[in-house]
Structure formats: structure tokens, C-alpha cells
């Protein structure tokens, strides 16, 4: 006891610093990287450039929003990249009916995949990492069976979704921004959001206090699947081709990274929506910086690893709680 008291003051300061870094580290990093690029990267300060970065990061943001919810419940969704591929194959298969039905079918396929994963987690009691790993493999396979080869898309409606814009802001970016706003509202202001955080914080207590834990978990995975499918639709529209073989590969890792460095702990119980967006932006800027300075992209992976470790370290030191 005496030892704890003796070490209290510096320990508290350190905890404070770490808590601050956990909350705002990602914002500071994004700002620093932006500043670096403004000073050192030619042609960086240009509306076209900012548009490029936002358009490229939009699908990752959309997937990461769903991932943040799932991680908030102390779960994980590894199937998101494969769901993107499944959405791409659905778009290819159903575009003959027009863009709206094709997009709806793709979203439904994402929701259905999420429902399977959510049912396995909530009702069967399979661990999230196992249930969604099975889906990661199986759904990618299904997408490849349905559309074995990249197929180009020429439907003007769908292409407009990928490349059109309002007042200079691409649809893709607007959609990602709108979904972010909705998600931030849901997490902070709705009962649903608070209940999800409660499940992640303490599932047993949530169950005992009468929360419909199973239904809530199912809903969270359905949302994640639907968002991933949406990201797959947008990525397909932007690529102007459905490519279930390579679309969304490793997306689960990008999304988890964005969530974790955004300040949402893998142990659940807290969700940072804006932090998640910043996490995705940080990764995007990092990659862009390396490409623009013609440095090997392998460096991005090494730096990302360092950032993840830093984020986990900051998150792990909340013993003062």
C-alpha cells in the first residue's frame, strides 16, 4: 500500500499523459502529417489532391464505422473484406435490373452475411473471431464462384455514384461523411448506442439487468455487414468494374487498425467514432506521403505497426480507471 502511495504522483501524471494521448493522439498525428505534407510535398495543397485522399479513404471509413460498433461490444468482424467482394459480385450479377435494385441486393447480401455472423456469435455462442473468420474464407469463395473474373461495368447510374460530385465534393465522400454523422449520433445519443457500449463493458451485467443482449449483438453484426457491402458497392462504382478476386483484400486489417488507433479499445466498452475516421485518415495520409515521395510502400506497413503498438500501449495503460 505504501509503495502505491509513494508512486502515486508521477504515476498519475503518466496516466494522464497516456489518457490524453489515447484521446487526442490520432488527431495530433493527422495534423502533424498534414503539416509535413503542406511544407514538403509538392502540389499537396490543391483541392484535387484533398479530394483524392478523401475519395480513397471513404470505403475504409465506412467499413471501420461498422467495425467500431462490433469492437465496442468486445467482438470483431473479420468478414468485412469478403463482404465487399460479395457486394461487388452482386452488383455485377444484378445490374441488368438497373443500379438501384443491384445496390439493394448487394446491401441485402451484406446484411444477410452479418446476420449469419451475428447469429453464430449471439445465439450459438461461437467466438466472434472464429465465426467471422469462417465467413472471411467462405464469403470470398462464394463471391468468386458467383463472378470468377473481373467484369467491367458501364451502367451510367452506377458509374455516377463512383465519380460524380456535388459542388466539388464527390458522392462517395458525402456518403462517408453522412454515415459518420449518423454513427456518431447513434453511439452518443441513442439508447441503442449506450446499450452496445454496455455490452462491451460488461456482458454479464448487461444480461442480468435485462438488456436484450443477443438481439443487440445480432443487430451490430448486421450493421457491420451492411456497411461493408455499401463500401464494396462504392469501391466497385469507383473502379468501374466488379472484381471479387481482389476487392477488399486485407480490408479487415485496415478497418481494425483505424478503429484501434482511433481510441476504441479491443476490449470493448467504448466507441470513438470520430477517432476511427481520424485513424483511417492517418493511414491514408501515411500511404499518400510515401507514394508522393516515391518511397517503397513497404515502409507504410512498418510505420503502421509502430502506430498500432503505440495506440495499444496508450489504451492498455488505463489502470487508473
Amino acid at each position: 500500500m505504501a509503495e502505491a502511495v509513494a508512486g502515486r504522483r508521477p504515476g498519475l501524471d503518466r496516466a494522464r499523459v497516456l489518457a490524453w494521448a489515447r484521446e487526442y493522439g490520432v488527431y495530433v498525428s493527422v495534423l502533424a502529417l498534414l503539416l509535413f505534407n503542406v511544407v514538403f510535398t509538392p502540389n499537396f495543397v490543391d483541392p484535387g489532391n484533398f479530394r483524392t485522399q478523401l475519395v480513397q479513404v471513404a470505403p475504409i471509413v465506412i467499413v471501420a464505422l461498422g467495425m467500431a460498433l462490433v469492437i465496442g461490444t468486445e467482438g470483431i468482424d473479420l468478414s468485412v473484406g469478403s463482404v465487399m467482394a460479395l457486394a461487388a459480385s452482386m452488383v455485377v450479377l444484378y445490374l441488368g435490373y438497373g443500379p438501384v435494385p443491384a445496390v439493394l441486393v448487394a446491401l441485402a447480401a451484406g446484411a444477410a452475411t452479418g446476420a449469419v455472423g451475428g447469429a453464430l456469435v449471439a445465439y450459438v455462442g461461437v467466438q466472434p473471431i472464429v465465426a467471422t473468420l469462417a465467413l472471411l474464407v467462405g464469403v470470398r469463395g462464394l463471391a468468386n464462384v458467383l463472378v470468377p473474373q473481373l467484369k467491367e461495368i458501364s451502367n451510367p447510374g452506377l458509374l455516377a455514384l463512383g465519380s460524380g460530385s456535388v459542388a466539388g465534393v464527390p458522392y462517395v465522400v458525402l456518403i462517408a461523411a453522412a454515415l459518420t454523422a449518423v454513427m456518431a449520433f447513434v453511439v452518443r445519443r441513442t439508447t441503442f448506442g449506450r446499450r452496445i457500449v454496455a455490452i462491451g463493458g460488461n456482458r454479464t451485467a448487461s444480461e442480468l439487468s435485462g438488456l436484450p443482449v443477443k438481439r443487440l449483438l445480432l443487430a451490430v453484426y448486421v450493421i457491420s455487414g451492411t456497411l461493408a457491402a455499401g463500401a464494396g458497392v462504392l469501391a466497385t462504382a469507383r473502379l468501374q468494374a466488379g472484381d471479387p478476386t481482389s476487392l477488399g483484400l486485407f480490408m479487415e486489417l485496415s478497418a481494425i487498425t483505424a478503429v484501434v488507433i482511433g481510441g476504441t479499445p479491443l476490449s470493448g466498452g467504448r466507441i470513438r467514432v470520430l477517432g476511427t475516421v481520424m485513424g483511417a485518415l492517418l493511414m491514408q495520409l501515411l500511404q499518400a506521403t510515401l507514394i508522393k515521395h516515391d518511397l517503397p510502400q513497404s515502409w507504410a506497413q512498418i510505420v503502421q505497426a509502430a502506430i498500432i503498438l503505440a495506440a495499444v500501449y496508450a489504451a492498455g495503460n488505463r489502470g487508473a480507471r
Binding site: L86, S89, M90, V92, L93, Y94, L95, G96, Y97, A109, A112, T113, A115, V116, A119, L120, Y123, V124, G125, G138, L142, L146, K151, I153, S154, N155
Partner: peptide, 29 residues
């Protein structure tokens, strides 16, 4: 018993999904 009840349900959903996927597809020309 919960497992036994829900596992087939999940499997059926998955298969239904797969079938629906290719059932009435109509690709671009």
C-alpha cells in the same frame, strides 16, 4: 441445446443466401 437449435438455422440461412445469390441474376449486356 441452444447450439443444436441455432446451428442448423445459421447453416440454412447461409445456403439460402448462396442460392438466392445466383437464382435470378441478370447481368449487364
Amino acid at each position: 441445446s441452444g447450439r443444436c437449435r441455432h446451428l442448423p438455422l445459421a447453416a440454412v440461412t447461409a445456403v439460402a443466401l448462396a442460392l438466392a445469390a445466383s437464382g435470378c441474376a441478370k447481368t449487364e449486356d
